[in-house]
Simulated scan of single mutants.
Amino acid sequence: MDHHLLLIIHLLCAALWVGGHLLLVFAYLPQALKTKDQNIILNYEKKYEAIGMTALVLLVISGVLMAYKYNVSIEYWFHFDSPIEKVVSTKLLLLLLTVAFALSAQFRVLPKLKNDPNKLPEMTFHIVAVTLIGVLMLVFGTFIRFGGF
């Protein structure tokens, strides 16, 4: 697949993933915390999950394919030898951290949050962490344009 098309897919999916989380943090989360109503978060999560997860899967696929186009194949992941490898490996580490937060939220926090608004602070930590990670991944991705870091 053409690199430019991969980049467009990657950027559109990043807009959906990061934008959806920023919307959650700045529009829905404050309201949920103020009213102590976990259903605000749960309802947003229900609406956003399909598009957000699709965007995340396409981000991973397009990111891996672009890494290969930059000659950073799997055997070079986490070597941190070249500037591009550093960007790719850092983004992969952040992706693994995102997955850890997502699994924790999905299997540990969300089931409890459905019946207990006192779990909102823990869910807030997960939401803010995943949002910050997403923003960091977006920023680190821009360094590809300059040859890495």
Rank of each mutant, 00 (worst) to 15 (best):
I84N: 06
F107D: 02
I51H: 14
E75H: 12
S62Y: 15
L113A: 00
V139G: 10
L136K: 01
L59H: 14
T90Q: 12
L136S: 14
E75M: 08
R145W: 12
P121R: 11
P117H: 07
K46Y: 06
F101L: 03
T142E: 03
S82W: 04
L65G: 00
S104Q: 13
T131F: 08
W77T: 09
T142G: 06
V130R: 04
Y70I: 09
K119P: 00
I41H: 00
L65V: 11
K86G: 10
Q106N: 10
F125S: 02
A105V: 02
A50Y: 08
T98L: 15
L33A: 05
K86D: 07
L94N: 01
M66E: 11
E49W: 09
L58K: 05
A105Y: 01
K34C: 12
Y76R: 12
L120R: 05
A105K: 01
K34G: 07
K69I: 05
V109F: 07
L132R: 10
L92W: 06
A32P: 02
N115C: 09
A105L: 00
T142C: 07
S104G: 12
V135M: 02
L95T: 13
L56Q: 01
P111Y: 05
R108I: 12
Y76W: 15
S82L: 13
H79Y: 15
T142M: 14
V87Q: 06
V72W: 07
G134A: 06
K114L: 04
S89W: 02
R145V: 15
T35K: 09
S89F: 03
K114I: 03
A55N: 02
F125W: 02
S104E: 04
M53D: 08
K69H: 15
A100F: 15
T90L: 13
I61T: 06
L97S: 13
A67E: 07
Y48R: 12
K91V: 01
V57C: 04
Q38E: 03
A105D: 01
I127V: 07
I61M: 04
Y48I: 11
V64C: 07
H79G: 08
G141F: 10
I133Q: 11
K114S: 01
L103I: 04
V64K: 07
T35I: 10
S73C: 08
N115P: 10
G52A: 05
T98G: 09
I144K: 11
F80K: 10
M137S: 05
L94M: 05
L92K: 09
I61P: 02
L58N: 08
L120H: 03
G141S: 04
Y70R: 04
G63H: 14
I40S: 01
I127C: 02
V87F: 00
D81W: 15
E122D: 10
T35H: 06
S89E: 10
N115Q: 13
I84Y: 09
K119I: 03
S73E: 08
F146P: 05
K36Y: 11
V139T: 13
N43K: 11
I144D: 14
N39E: 09
L96T: 04
K91S: 04
L110Y: 05
Y48K: 10
Y70A: 13
L103S: 04
E45S: 12
A55I: 06
F146K: 13
T98R: 13
V135F: 01
E85F: 11
V72A: 14
R145L: 15
Y48E: 11
V88C: 12
